[in-house]
Design a binder for these strands. Sequence first.
DNA 1: CGTATGACGAGCC
DNA 2: AGGCTCGCCATAC
Length: 108
Amino acid sequence: MDRAARTPGFFARVYAVVGAIPRGRVATYGQVARLLGLPRGARAVGWALRALDDRTARRVPWHRVVGAGGRIALRSGPGPVLQRKRLAAEGVRFRGTHVDIARHGLTS
DNA sequence: CGTATGACGAGCC
DNA sequence: AGGCTCGCCATAC
């Protein structure tokens, strides 16, 4: 286990919240941050997910976290495609390039 | 301890 | 709609 995931630090809490997102639904970085008690910590959440290594990523449903409005935040590499693919596999609908947040949002 | 870095977000243009 | 700027936050150096 990585140090970040073992210690009761920020990363671990982010992973715990993300892990609680139900299958077929998505949450925004801002929402996750809010659940952690950091209304303006969306960016920090992004930092935590970015720090996921291949092994840790296997136990954290990072693909269920999207940007405000359902935007796929990943910009390059296999990430964006993989995320969209995984979400689609869970039945998540898209409206163009964005996730249909109104239909699959955490609180929706 | 100051500066840099992002998988962010809201405002503006 | 698409692109920029600026503010926020936890880390990395």
